[in-house]
Write a protein that binds this DNA or RNA. Structure first.
Length: 211
DNA sequence: CCTCGGGTAAACATGT
DNA sequence: GACATGTTTACCCGAG
């Protein structure tokens, strides 16, 4: 992957003050993501509120998601054993389009995996027992399944976090107590967006963009 | 050509 | 202070 050219600090510093102004349109643009349905569900803050614990322990939505998975006739795990390197948990190949993991095999060990970060995160979370993971665990999962990242530039973690924060598919669940090392929240997949993710996963033709 | 999704870098805030 | 985590902004690129 080539260095993202044109992202030099110099360039960024070009517009010291005007940047803000110009940024406004950008902000609005961002705000127009799937924000519409968001008004009713203020993302993390909602989960982090008083009922957070209930939400978490309740896991009602997880049941929902289970149904979703069932409805979509995915594997027991609801996911393909996505990673090419994924050979654990039985070889029960889900009824997923083979395009997902068409022989990326060892290739993915050294080359960039054919999945977007959002999908990687999704897979990581879905493979966890509780369907919730702290970023650290997400890192681990990705590293574990895609050794490529072991040698990849450190920026990928930033990208993961960036995705978690920005992507509405993921919900942050504050840990009310027993903070593991005092840091890190749990991240879950918003059941509302799960179908989207699964669809993306199914499609994922990924002709290896290679940038 | 424009929009959008995705990727990357970086600044900044916060907590341990 | 260092580090991890989380948020936000900005920009680039490719696909549709």
């Amino acid at each position: 992957m080539g260095p993202v050219i044109g992202m030099t600090p110099d360039k960024r510093a070009e517009t010291p003050g005007a940047e803000k102004v110009a940024g406004l349109s950008q902000i609005y643009k961002m705000g127009s993501l799937p924000e519409a349905g968001d008004a009713a569900r203020p993302k993390a803050t909602l989960v982090g509120s008083e009922s957070a614990d209930d939400e978490l322990t309740n896991l009602n939505w997880l049941h929902e998601s289970s149904n979703l998975l069932t409805n979509l006739r995915l594997g027991s795990e609801g996911l393909p054993m996505v990673s090419p390197l994924y050979d654990i948990e039985g070889d029960e190949m889900p009824s997923f389009g083979p395009s997902c993991y068409q022989n990326p095999e060892k290739k993915s060990a050294t080359s960039k995996p054919p999945y977007s970060f959002s999908l990687l995160i999704y897979m990581a979370i879905e493979h966890s027992p509780n369907k919730c993971l702290p970023v650290k665990e997400i890192y681990s999962w990705i590293l574990d399944r895609f050794p490529y990242f072991a040698t990849a530039p450190t920026g990928w973690k930033n990208s993961v976090r960036h995705n978690l924060s920005l992507n509405k598919c993921f919900q942050k669940v504050e840990r009310s107590h027993g903070k593991v090392n005092g840091k890190g929240s749990l991240w879950c997949v918003d059941p509302e967006y799960k179908p989207n993710l699964m669809q993306a996963l199914k499609k994922q033709p990924f002709s290896s963009p290679q940038r």
